[in-house]
Design a protein around this nucleic acid. Sequence first.
DNA 1: CCTACCGATCGGTAGG
DNA 2: CCTACCGATCGGTAGG
Lengths: 197, 197
Amino acid sequence: MTGGYQKGRIRRDDLVSAAAKVYGEAGYHASSLREIAKRAGITHAGLLYHFPTKEALLAAVLERRDAEDAAREQLAAPPGLEVLRRFVALAEHNVRHRGIVDLYSRLAAEAISEDHPAHAYFARHYREAREAIADSFHALAETGELRPGIDPDLAALTFIALMDGLQVQWLTTPTQVDVVGSLRLSLQTLLTVPLFP
Amino acid sequence: MTGGYQKGRIRRDDLVSAAAKVYGEAGYHASSLREIAKRAGITHAGLLYHFPTKEALLAAVLERRDAEDAAREQLAAPPGLEVLRRFVALAEHNVRHRGIVDLYSRLAAEAISEDHPAHAYFARHYREAREAIADSFHALAETGELRPGIDPDLAALTFIALMDGLQVQWLTTPTQVDVVGSLRLSLQTLLTVPLFP
DNA sequence: CCTACCGATCGGTAGG
DNA sequence: CCTACCGATCGGTAGG
């Protein structure tokens, strides 16, 4: 009884996976429904049976990314050093999974346009990331672990922007960019205590 | 005698300007020769009389950008604090000329692909930018103006990546991103002397 | 520099 | 989920 239902769910997941991969290789706009469908083993009309428009498929890709992030954030720590360490760990994870970074970096640049279907998603993503980091810098300021005179909100913006900039440069010239080293350097200079004792 | 020649030069410049603008709005791949040609007041076939392929037009846009940068780098200072100040001044200039930043940020993300026609351009651009900044950090290390224990090359990578990451985030949500403030904060924490006394 | 055209590709729909 | 199709758009070419 649940066979067709289950099958449908699996098929949708396959399509979302294929879409994420193709977006990562070519961006959203340059990706075709035919290429995505082919990788999932169906026709592009078949894809449109599951996702009525190209934009609906993108929405599904972003939703699944959010769900994965949320599952990971069960690991969320209280504001402080540990949060910063986990962001560095996330960067370490990312350099071992290029596809994730590809998808994110290409979509982020496309989504600069206010009328891009992922624009609101990225505006929210940036704000939430800045707020999460800012909470930790504020906590560190109160305990004297943030260097005096540093604006916690500006430090948070700096950290998130640095992560994004490193990713694009790393994707373009992987052998010449030490993503994790740069993040550690940047964080350590903001702190009065060792980030990794 | 030089009339036709002059006219041709002007027309080519108009086309390059129109192309830079459209690339900035939509990226390279999503830009059409018809849209670019229309803004310059000719047909797309007319554009192809001046630039034989879509790729040749992109090359001309990048060449002009290099020429403009070179002209600006007559202002190039010897390695040291002044170089860092001028990069901050460049960022101040950029936030008043959104089109330049748009063009750069969108192309950079597309050029992640090794087969993108601007890939080699950006690989070179990153390397040259890192080297220019690294020279200054090395000089500052020798005079004790760089905080002890900071790797000058890693600091250079960090600064360039931060500039790029700030630009994308600023383009997406302009009112929420203080590009210049973030750059000043980041540089100041690396130094033992005031960047802006 | 234009008109007119080509083959290819695109997202989406009809109808089953 | 497929076959078959649509109108739109693309980069590029022929021929002037």
